[in-house]
Design a protein around this nucleic acid. Structure first.
Length: 269
DNA sequence: TCTAGGTCCTGTTTTACTTCA
DNA sequence: ATTGAAGTAAAACAGGACCTA
């Protein structure tokens, strides 16, 4: 699995931050009946949703459950299907609050959904999905972020929507999910950058100290050069026996490779 | 190899709704 | 209390890429 977890060498947060190489490999999405192909070009792949279940744009788990509970209760006396759509069709008075994360959930909901009769012909009639429909869609999205034609058709029938609407909803939902994940990644990168910056400052300071130490003829200059070794990790001078490779006097050379403050610590010596 | 049909992604537009002065 | 502008979320759309038959 790319992305999270495999780039621990860079950052011990366990989160990979290789934005440019997210898609070296891609999971199969068997639910959709269509295997997602390895992404070519610069397309971004959807691959985090199942890994980060908390990163949904829908209601949080608790809110989600409470909604479900309430809806289930509300729907108890009714038929199990959403054929009751017309019951909240054309109502323009109901108040609603989208059940976003952390937001309160109002029972009532605005639904300007028009009846199915005028589906045809009208150019673009935007319909707000009902809470029940949204919940079911979210439920399905949790299981699989893509739909095969059968699932799409079944969902459409269950929700009294057109298959196209279900399809569009899933498309938009995937886009939202990905956007959210991008924001999370961005935040992580920021934090990592901050950490690296502070580590860099610290190392610069340490370097300055070592340089000044060198200029003021340090004690270990009195030692035979052969007794001084360089720590391979942090390149600090260490006293000790000759390791064979370190025959030079005290030197500070730039590290050739990327320094990872998480996996290496110069203070570890 | 070419083509048609289908799906997905991405960006954009449109619309419903909220907030605030 | 009302109203209208601005902002926001989401439904819908368009177009291109890609896959499969």
């Amino acid at each position: 699995m790319m992305g999270f977890g495999t780039t621990d060498d860079l950052c011990n947060t366990g989160l990979g931050l290789e934005l440019g190489s997210f898609h070296a490999e891609q999971e199969n999405c068997s639910q959709s009946g269509r295997l997602l192909q390895p992404i070519k070009k610069n397309k971004l792949a959807l691959k985090y949703d199942h890994m980060l279940p908390s990163l949904t744009l829908g209601p949080s788990e608790e809110v989600y459950r409470s909604i479900r509970k309430k809806i289930d209760a509300d729907l108890q006396p009714q038929a199990s299907s959403f054929s009751a759509v017309s019951s909240f069709s054309n109502s323009s008075i109901k108040k609603e609050r989208e059940f976003g994360i952390g937001e309160e959930v109002d029972v009532e909901r605005v639904s300007s959904r028009v009846s199915d009769e005028d589906e045809e012909g009208s150019p673009r009639k935007k319909l707000r999905l009902t809470k029940e429909q949204s919940v079911v869609l979210e439920d399905n999205f949790k299981d699989h972020s893509t739909l095969n034609p059968k699932q799409k058709q079944a969902l459409a029938e269950q929700l009294n929507l057109r298959p196209r609407q279900v399809e569009v909803w899933f498309q938009n939902r995937r886009a939202r999910s990905k956007l959210k994940q991008t924001e999370v990644d961005c935040e992580l990168l920021k934090k990592c950058c901050e950490t690296l910056t502070s580590e860099n400052k610290r190392l610069q300071k340490e370097l300055q100290e070592l340089k000044s130490l060198k200029l003021s003829s340090p004690v270990y200059m009195q030692l035979p050069a052969a007794t001084l070794t360089m720590c391979p990790s942090c390149e600090r001078i260490c006293g000790g026996s000759d390791q064979g490779s370190s025959t030079s006097t005290f030197t500070v050379r730039p590290k050739p490779n990327f320094y990872n403050p998480y996996t290496h610590s110069s203070a570890a010596c």
